[in-house]
């Protein structure tokens, strides 16, 4: 195999060397040397290839929009999602137009002005008017986009709900843990020095922590009820990425970060909508964090308040978990 590849390459190189020799020799025979600059014929060919290329490029882009539209993320499943998607679509329309128009103009100029013998270019060094136009027009468009973008940003990024579900999302190499505040609606304090085999999150032994509910692998949220995520990290930087909700925030050791949003579509509804029985919302890790960065996930189930309450009742509190664990160790 390796041998085959090497010989192919060698043959290829020899063939080109031979060709080049012939090319140069025949040029020398014909009258000295090949033209250093592009000839009229070459310039014409290249100009038309350019035009063809731009057609291909625009076609390729259109094909991708069409071909991949089903692979893109489905409808945003959070309250702020549509605002982001609208901003995205608006921006996308503008930049696609700019991209297409500039390339069409480029191709047009190329085909119109390729080198012909005996022709001379027009000496045209500057024009304040033109330059003013293409400073002011982009500036105006961008001002619009900046104002629009910042309005959305302000709406999305600052937590503001009255009474959200508070969840701590804790990251470590290579999994996620979610902690709900429990009955008292307060997350108990933690200290990383307290971490050990039975205490993954380093929780302190205080009442606020004892009623907290800790889950792995899958977490649950309520449709139309705001959730405030508080992120912590044990070891390196990770990033909690929930693409369907248009949510992402880094988790940073030594500090707490946060993101608040409201899910609007239940998992069940989304399964119907996408026609995919196995559909699940996921949390991915989106900041390189080591070997298994590519497989650091948690499922998110969005459901009605009743379903959520039922699920919640089935969970053990941190105190109950500790009790079970010590009972087990006594038995052993």
């Amino acid at each position: 195999m390796t041998f085959l590849i090497l010989t192919t390459i060698a043959l290829f190189v020899i063939a080109i060397v031979r060709l080049m020799n012939v090319y140069d020799l025949s040029a020398e025979i014909r009258g000295g040397r090949t033209d250093d600059r592009a000839t009229e014929g070459e310039s014409r060919n290249m100009a038309w290839l350019w035009a063809l290329f731009v057609v291909w490029l625009l076609g390729f882009l259109a094909w991708q929009f069409f071909e991949y539209k089903d692979d893109l993320l489905p409808r945003a499943a959070s309250a702020h999602g549509p605002a982001i998607d609208n901003l995205f679509n608006t921006t996308m329309v503008i930049i696609t137009l700019v991209f297409a128009l500039t390339h069409i103009v480029l191709a047009y100029q190329i085909v119109k002005n390729y080198f012909r013998n005996g022709r001379k270019a027009t000496y045209f060094a500057h024009s304040n008017k033109l330059e003013l136009i293409w400073t002011v027009v982009p500036a105006a468009v961008l001002t619009g986009l900046i104002v629009y973008g910042l309005t959305v940003w302000d709406d999305v990024i600052y937590p503001k709900a009255e009474d959200p579900i508070v969840v701590e999302l804790y990251s470590k190499q290579f999994d996620w843990t979610a902690r709900y505040a429990g009955k008292d609606k307060v997350l108990g304090k933690s200290d990383y020095r307290k971490i050990d085999a039975g205490n993954d999150l380093g929780l302190l032994n205080v009442p606020e922590a004892n009623d907290d509910i800790i889950v792995k692998g899958e977490m649950h949220l309520v449709k139309d009820k705001p959730v405030l995520f508080k992120f912590r990290s044990r070891d390196v930087i990770h990033s909690a990425y929930l693409p369907h909700f248009r949510v992402q925030m880094n988790t940073v050791p030594g500090m707490e970060t946060a993101f608040e949003f409201t899910p609007t579509i239940t998992t069940e509804e989304m399964r119907k909508e996408t026609g995919n029985e196995k559909f699940n919302y996921v949390i991915l890790c989106n900041k390189i964090c080591g070997t298994s960065h590519y497989n650091m996930q948690m499922d998110v189930i969005v459901e009605t308040q009743e379903e959520y309450d039922k699920w919640m009742r089935e969970q053990q509190t941190w105190r109950q978990k500790k009790a079970t664990a010590s009972a087990e160790s006594i038995i052993q």
């Binding site: 070459e42 002005n113 012909r116 027009t122 293409w134």
Partner: peptide
Amino acid sequence: AVKVFNYITTLWKGNIHFT
């Protein structure tokens, strides 16, 4: 954007050698 438009205008009425 200014740079891009200036490049394109440089091609306008040029006599372009496609080396």
